Simulated assay, not measured.
Amino acid sequence: MRVRGISWVGVKTDSYQSMRNFFADVAGMTPDHEDGDFTVFGLPGGDKLEIFGPGAADPPGQFAAGKVVAGLLVDDIDEAIAELRAAGIALIGEKQGGDGYWWQHFRAPDGTVFELAEDAGHP
């Protein structure tokens, strides 16, 4: 597996509106998608920042070990998943996604949750 970068960061917060407004109004980021307690900010390089409020539907286990999760961009998610399994790394749930964007959560050796991401639209 070769990690090409950080493609995604997810933040779970009890202060959804203030966090959403901070990234939009102070950091100058434009929301690509908003739905209730959930906002996706797309960055010019193809990366994403997602804010999850208390009512957002986040994947089970995603924020179990912390309020911030980073997605590691890989070229072939199935190959990377196989390498994680071979190394004895615990996967969380099943691979999810579609339309060129796939993700798989896993626990690093210290229990920190990360996400593998394959994104056909990422440069």
Rank of each mutant, 00 (worst) to 15 (best):
R4M: 13
G5H: 10
I6R: 01
S7G: 10
W8Y: 15
W8V: 10
V9T: 07
V9D: 02
V11R: 03
T13S: 01
T13D: 00
S15L: 05
Y16N: 00
R20K: 15
N21M: 11
A24K: 11
T30W: 08
D32F: 03
H33T: 07
E34Q: 12
D35P: 11
F38M: 12
T39G: 03
T39H: 07
F41G: 11
L43R: 09
P44Y: 08
G45M: 07
G46M: 09
D47M: 06
I51G: 01
G53T: 10
A56V: 06
A57Q: 08
D58K: 10
D58P: 02
P59S: 08
G61C: 01
Q62G: 02
Q62R: 14
F63T: 02
F63P: 00
V69Q: 03
V69H: 04
V69R: 02
G71L: 04
L72S: 02
L73A: 04
D75P: 00
D75H: 01
D75A: 03
D76P: 00
D78N: 14
E79Y: 03
A80G: 06
I81E: 13
A82V: 12
E83C: 06
E83P: 03
A86Q: 15
G88D: 11
I89K: 12
A90M: 08
E94P: 12
K95L: 13
K95E: 12
K95P: 06
G97P: 11
G98Q: 06
G100Y: 14
Y101Q: 14
W103S: 14
Q104P: 02
R107M: 08
D110W: 13
G111I: 09
G111L: 07
G111K: 09
T112F: 10
V113D: 02
V113S: 05
F114T: 05
F114N: 03
E115W: 07
L116V: 11
A117C: 12
A117D: 09
E118F: 09
G121Y: 10
G121V: 10
P123V: 01
P123Y: 00
P123F: 01
